[in-house]
Structures are given as structure tokens and as C-alpha cells.
Amino acid sequence: ATNIVSKVKWYNSTKNFGFIEQDNGGKDVFVHKSAVDAAGLHSLEEGQDVIFDLEEKQGKAYAVNLRIK
């Protein structure tokens, strides 16, 4: 899926990962520091509106092509 609009559930800049809620009630989506860095960001804030693409690797959903709404 591409261009999903949602909100950051939480992000831990010390552990370099977090999760984004899915508005459709699906499972929370993992977001890694590499996606945050690629977006030119230093961190994410809880409740922040984001747009991302969903990529599945080894049966897990990852946020990629992250951008701020």
C-alpha cells in the first residue's frame, strides 16, 4: 500500500524505532530510524501526522518512504 496517512503512536529515538497507528484499525506499523533518516528527520513525535508506504518483509509490516503530512 502507498501514501497511507496516519499518526505516530510512539517513537523512541534512543532505541531507534517506533510504531505508527493504522487508521483502518489494522496492526501498528513498525518504523525504523533508517526510514526517519531517509525522510531527513531527526525523530518523530507522538501524534505526528505522517504519510508512508507499507512494505512487508518476512511477514512484518514496515513503514518506508516516510514523510510529514
Rank of each mutant, 00 (worst) to 15 (best):
V29Q: 02
S34W: 10
A39L: 08
A63N: 01
E56C: 14
K60C: 10
S34V: 08
V8F: 02
E45M: 13
E21A: 14
L66F: 00
D37P: 01
Q58W: 14
A35E: 10
W10L: 03
E45W: 15
K15Q: 07
Y11K: 00
E45I: 14
K7Y: 06
G18I: 03
F19G: 01
V64Q: 05
K9F: 03
T14C: 14
L54P: 01
F30K: 02
F17I: 03
A39H: 03
D49G: 12
G18F: 04
E56G: 07
N24E: 10
K7P: 03
A61S: 13
I68S: 08
V64W: 08
Y62V: 06
E46S: 15
V5N: 11
N65V: 03
A38V: 08
V8W: 02
A38T: 08
H32E: 03
S43Y: 13
I4S: 06
I4T: 06
F52Y: 13
G47N: 07
K9D: 02
F52S: 01
K57H: 12
H42M: 12
N16F: 09
G26D: 10
D28F: 04
K15F: 11
F52G: 01
E46Q: 14
G25L: 08
I4G: 06
D37W: 15
G18S: 01
L66M: 03
T2M: 12
R67M: 05
Q58L: 12
K15G: 05
K60M: 10
V5H: 14
K27R: 12
Y62S: 07
G26A: 11
A38N: 08
E46W: 12
V64P: 01
V5T: 11
G26K: 13
D28S: 05
T14I: 12
S34M: 10
L44T: 00
L66D: 01
K15N: 06
E45S: 13
V64R: 07
L54R: 07
D53I: 04
E45V: 14
V36D: 00
V31I: 10
N16Y: 09
E56V: 15
A39T: 06
Q22L: 13
L44M: 05
F30W: 05
E21T: 14
I51C: 10
D37H: 14
A63H: 01
G47D: 05
G18D: 00
G47M: 05
K60H: 09
S34P: 02
I68W: 07
T14R: 14
L41F: 10
S43Q: 11
I20V: 06
G59P: 01
L54A: 03
L66C: 03
D23L: 15
G47E: 04
T14A: 13
S43T: 14
Q48Y: 06
Y11Q: 00
K15E: 04
K60Y: 11
S43N: 12
L41N: 03
G59T: 04
A39C: 05
K69Q: 13
A1K: 14
D53K: 03
W10S: 02
